[in-house]
Design a protein around this nucleic acid. Structure first.
Lengths: 376, 376
DNA sequence: CGGCTGCGTGTCAACGTTGTCAGGTCGTGA
DNA sequence: TCACGACCTGACAACGTTGACACGCAGCCG
């Protein structure tokens, strides 16, 4: 026999008021610290509230006041991906001081789930919506622009008319890292012996927009180096470390041995490094990747790095401005990337430090953001 | 001149009803697909709703129905920390199919922020609360147990009476990895030359409960190996990769050279490896850490690994059960750890695979959970 | 033909809260 | 004494929605 604890109905202002022998309105006044409540009455109300463990129903209050709940929706493909979670952490850090709560939903790369999530968040009256879209449909346009809910597209800009966007400078990063790999081969670097540079690329399956931009950056670097564009045999697609490892193993066996391997994201880079290590080619073949990877510097992995958390903060600031009534034209922020070259491998780049493998969230990374903000 | 877009008041059921020339109730019926609505009327209502972009106010509906909003709060120290974000991702994955939304708040290790966050979530009527506590106070007890809101403490159990807990088996993991380091030294491993094993430990500053459990595991392993307990000079505290690197550099310079370095979390492990690499002792001195680290296997880092996302799913399942009315006694789940030894370094352990450095979220990791669930 | 059932619709109230307004009781200055 | 202000309190309505209930109209059966 347990203590009949079952369904305790939440205590309301009514209960507190009855207990304190005042009207609900007076109880409300006392609890909100308004003026014109007799000290003794206030004390009685507060004591009554304490004794029954009263908590205001913020939802009902918001409804009465016509205020939207202090929620901001964040929809990403997968929160377990460090990129998205750092992004979310950055957003949340900016929002929290303003009393806004971040509601995170993962779509698991499923456009339908994304649509459902967006609809659900919108129905709950979120103040703003941040979407790292899996499928840049028009659904978000029709759904989100309608009620005047600010929409910020992050990582993938999509094509929603009124939406703000915050994206990485993928093309520039890819171009830079590609140029680095090429220069390293051509020059007298650790593995470069004057052979004609020959790249192998492992690209991502999904995130089409970012992937495309990165491949364009690669193409541009090749063109600028006077080299022919990538042949189909030089590129493999993969979606995780294991498949990347297999892909790179195959690429390494190709006839003109690759002199450099470029992996287009952190998972793929890990797989690529493993494949190289297994083939005993870690020193002989240059390797570079996107995103931060733990211990990258120690295994000679160059990375196109960036501050995902700062990117999230930028998103958060944008959201705050919109929530506070900024009705200006859509803003489009491009976050720069930074090439981080391992210490013993600075053939082309000079001032890169060795902090690419810092496992910390990266609070202190200095990343100047290109923010075309008209005023303030 | 822009299109007078300013403060659009949200369209309500009233507007739709007026437009369709029916009562709000009939509009409600049509939109909810109830029976007993004339097809022609329903069509008129739907068309009206579409034309003004009507979205139901889910908050008002919940209030009317007396239902708590489908929100679950998740309070952690820092979502940018991969551990917490994977945890959150796991929780969210279990919750989403049930239509529950996860509200994530970071406390930034600040007990006050944590208290504020918990209060705020409670006021919003979250269905359940998941807390990776920074300060295991009694606040949560008084605040959260009161309204019958289920509370799940994760990572740090704390001391809240009715709360469910999900924690790692820190002591066992630490004991296992310590035994591994000791055996490696004593045996004929790569770096072991029969010297008396001498450990250096970098421990975490905060997360007292987990840290203490881990240190206890270390102590037990030493005792079982017939070795003296750790001396003060063998232990340093650090809180990030950089400070860990400095700490390990100092430890390495000590008189009886350490034969093994043990770092108590992922950040510290990264710093430790860097320090060893810088000292050229990567091969000579065994190194081990907690948590998953990218590319750990390639640099000879053994890790006490576990599946944070699966841990989160366990939390999610617990939350679901509670939300669905499970009033049983508090459950306490202990998640096992797994020692992952790099390929070339399996002196003591046999069947460990080499996937410790898999950057993927770890969907496919098989981790049997010790779940003392009475029924189902 | 009276009663009954199935259908389609509307009125009313309520979820928990707070703004508005209307009292009421003092004390004070004219 | 009266009016006026400051203080304290309560009744009422409303936020947007939907359950409960009632009404009206067919058609059907006895």
């Amino acid at each position: 026999m347990h203590t009949a604890d079952g369904e305790r109905p939440p205590t309301t202002l009514q209960h507190v008021a009855a207990l304190a022998r005042v009207s609900p309105k007076t109880a409300s006044r006392a609890l909100n610290g308004e003026r014109y409540v007799a000290p003794e009455t206030a004390a009685r109300v507060l004591e009554a509230a304490r004794s029954v463990g009263y908590r205001v129903n913020a939802v009902a209050r918001d409804l009465r006041l016509g205020a939207a709940p202090p929620l901001v929706g964040f929809v990403s493909a997968d929160l377990a991906n460090p990129f998205y979670s750092r992004l979310a952490a950055g957003v949340e850090r900016e929002l929290r001081p303003a009393g806004l709560l971040l509601v995170t939903v993962s779509s698991d790369e499923d456009p339908d789930a994304e649509r459902t999530a967006v609809a659900s968040l919108l129905d709950r009256g979120v103040r703003a919506l941040v979407v790292a879209s899996t499928s840049a449909d028009q659904e978000h346009l029709e759904a989100a622009r309608r009620p005047g809910t600010p929409l910020v597209m992050v990582d993938r800009a999509g094509a929603v008319p009124g939406a703000d966007t915050v994206v990485l400078d993928n093309a520039a990063g890819a171009r830079e890292v590609t140029a680095h790999l090429l220069a390293r081969d051509a020059g007298g670097g650790a593995g470069g012996d004057g052979r004609r540079p020959h790249l192998a690329v492992v690209s991502d399956l999904r995130r089409l927009e970012t992937g495309r931009a990165r491949m364009e950056g690669v193409a541009r670097a090749l063109e600028e180096a006077g080299l022919p564009p990538l042949a189909a045999a030089q590129v493999r697609e993969a979606h995780d470390a294991a498949s990347a490892e297999r892909a790179v193993a195959e690429l390494l066996a190709a006839d003109p041995h690759p002199t450099g391997v470029l992996a287009m994201n952190n998972l793929l880079a890990t797989g690529a490094v493993r494949a190289l290590a297994r083939a005993g080619a870690l020193g002989a073949c240059a390797v570079a990747g996107f995103d931060d990877v733990d211990l990258a510097g120690l295994v000679g992995l160059a990375t196109v790095s960036y501050d995902a958390e700062e990117m999230g903060r930028e998103v958060g600031r944008l959201v705050l401005a919109r929530v506070r009534g900024d009705e200006g034209p859509a803003r489009h922020v491009v976050v720069p990337t930074r090439l981080v070259v391992p210490p013993e491998d600075d053939g082309a780049d000079g001032g890169a430090d060795d902090r690419a493998d810092d496992g910390a969230p990266g609070h202190d990374r200095v990343t100047s953001l290109t923010s075309p903000t008209p005023r303030a």
